[in-house]
């Protein structure tokens, strides 16, 4: 009885009693959600154009951040470290295309998915072997610290994160809309088979999307790294992008954003108001369970395309 009270009644009493605190929690959650979206965005770019579910996206975030912070710790100026890291991510795209995707052209989606698991472990080992497994602090001069906005307490870093995510999404939208490469990618995404049969070279598409995903991973790595420090647990945080994708749909850029916001907001609210009753650390699984329940009702996600099977 008491348990039911703490789960069903008490949280709402708290929320009603201090709405401003609730809004603060909600805002914090939404801003964290934006960060999840940043990771999810990388998945969507690759999946849309090549139907590869890149499990390694999270590790790419960690890897990029490690490359960057590692070089800076060795005394490289930020611009140089950024430049080399971008170069490394492009190189990674070429390597993945040449060594993994090209030899696996006709494999099923699920086999490709498992191959990206392999890539994920490889990068995780490599990154930490090169730069060590300790927590590195990333100091790029991005403003951080608390800020009061309309009476609500937010973290400056989160605001910057939101701005960056907004910029990134706009840039991607413009890229897909107005550049010739973007148009090709859209064509491939719309009708995979048709685009390939009229001679869009798959190899080029792969390299482009993995490069883009690598650069998005770098951005995500900078944002996450600035707030949490660059460390192994980043790749676990990045796993949160998976439920985000399920909510938003694997092929939708807006879906990645909305999904991220939903996950970020609900898990933070759940943690703060329901966590104590349930024993805390609800954040660990809340997003996954949410995604699981959601899957039962709308398997294609909020914005995904409906799958019709045929024989």
């Amino acid at each position: 009885m008491h348990f039911l009270y703490t789960v069903l009644i008490d949280p709402f009493v708290q929320i009603a009693g201090d709405p401003r605190f609730f809004v603060e929690v909600l805002t914090g959650g939404l801003l964290t959600g934006v960060m999840y979206s940043l990771v999810a965005l990388g998945f969507v770019i690759i999946y849309k154009a090549s139907r590869v579910f890149n499990f390694a996206q999270g590790t790419m975030v960690l890897f990029a951040a490690l490359m960057l912070v590692g070089q800076m710790e060795m005394g490289a100026p930020a611009w140089l470290a950024l430049g080399t890291t971008c170069g490394v991510m492009v190189g990674l795209a070429f390597a993945v295309e040449r060594l993994v995707l090209r030899p696996m052209v006709n494999q099923s989606e699920i086999i490709l998915f498992m191959a990206t698991l392999g890539i994920s472990f490889f990068l995780e080992g490599l990154g930490q072997l090169m730069w060590g497994g300790d927590v590195h602090t990333l100091e790029l001069g991005i403003p951080s610290g608390p800020l009061t906005l309309g009476g609500i307490l937010v973290n400056k870093l989160d605001l910057v994160g939101a701005a960056v995510a907004g910029l990134l999404v706009t840039a991607l939208a413009l890229f897909f809309r107005w550049t010739s490469v973007g148009r090709v990618l859209r064509a491939v995404a719309d009708d995979h088979q048709a685009a390939l049969s009229v001679g869009v070279p798959l190899k080029v598409v792969w390299v482009i999307v993995w490069t883009m995903a690598g650069l998005v991973a770098l951005v995500a790595g900078i944002m996450w790294g600035s707030s949490l420090g660059v460390q192994f647990s980043l790749s676990l945080v990045a796993l949160k992008a998976l439920p985000v994708l399920i909510l938003g749909g694997f092929t939708s850029v807006p879906g990645a954003i909305v999904g991220g916001l939903i996950v970020g907001a609900t898990e933070k609210v759940g943690e703060v108001f329901w966590g104590p009753a349930l024993g805390g650390a609800v954040e660990n699984w809340f997003a996954y369970l949410l995604a699981l329940i959601f899957l039962l009702f709308r398997p294609q996600g909020l914005f995904g395309e409906r799958i019709i099977e045929r024989v």
Partner: peptide, 15 residues
């Protein structure tokens, strides 16, 4: 870390 690298590479290799 070496293990991660080796297993990662082997997964891809076998697949």
């Amino acid at each position: 870390n070496l293990q991660s690298i080796i297993f990662g590479a082997l997964i891809v290799f076998f697949l």
